[in-house]
């Protein structure tokens, strides 16, 4: 795993937490792209700290990841991801985690990846607001696209994003990264899982 490269498209609640789990799990190389800066309102669910407000998220995240593992190779781009630059960020990754905030961006990125980098698995998130009933969170798999979340549009527009569900979905994404990268390694409890 130390030789594997994982792309993270967006360094908000999903991307920052998934990146932390992946570095802890021993992924050696991460590529993270995001245009945003850390704000106070992010600290309730994203992997940043109060002294980092105002910093670009990717630089703050790189610092935090290197505190977990100083030997991790974290390449960051403080830019908005667009169809023009996405290839330069992610073409050398073994798998890409989609961690955008809004649905329009999720859509173009899914379509773009399918067209331009079709061999790279993409792990998306859709539907992470609210709380409770963690069993609602699911994974929809179709060829090399994976979609984590409840996929339910909230009836009230202002259902908040709260740390437990955001992190639950980020961890589902990170776990799928491991599933993809480690698919040739058998797990001794596989037969138990399937029962």
């Amino acid at each position: 795993m130390a030789s594997k490269c994982v792309g993270i498209a967006g360094a908000g609640g999903l991307g920052s937490n998934a990146a932390a789990a992946l570095v802890r799990a021993g992924i050696g190389r991460l590529v993270v792209a995001d245009f945003d800066v850390v704000e106070d309102s992010n600290l309730d669910r994203q992997f940043y700290f109060p002294d980092q407000t105002g910093q670009p998220k990717v630089y703050a995240l790189k610092n935090n990841l290197l505190r977990i593992n100083p030997t991790a190779f974290v390449r960051v781009f403080h830019e908005k991801i667009t169809p023009d630059n996405a290839r330069s960020f992610f073409s050398s990754c073994h798998v890409v985690v989609e961690a955008f905030d809004n649905a329009e961006e999720k859509e173009w990125f899914a379509v773009w990846m399918d067209k331009h980098l079709p061999r790279i698995p993409i792990i998306m998130a859709s539907g992470i607001s609210g709380w409770g009933h963690p069993e609602q969170m699911r994974v929809q798999r179709t060829s090399n696209m994976y979609v984590c979340g409840h996929q339910v549009e909230p009836e009230k527009k202002e259902i908040p994003l709260l740390a437990p569900r955001v992190m639950q979905v980020a961890m589902m994404q990170a776990d799928l990264v491991l599933e993809i990268l480690l698919k040739d390694i058998p797990q001794t409890h596989d037969h138990n899982v399937k029962q």
């Binding site: 908000g12 899914a110 539907g127 979340g149 339910v152």
Partner: peptide, 29 residues
């Protein structure tokens, strides 16, 4: 398993035995 472009929804036929995935994209990240 193959992504279908929006402009082809009207003309793409789904047949007996096919597998169709309709993924809802919801903001939040």
């Amino acid at each position: 398993g193959a992504l279908i472009a929006k402009e082809l929804y009207d003309s793409t036929l789904v047949k007996e035995g096919d597998t169709l995935d309709v993924i809802h994209l919801i903001s939040g990240g």
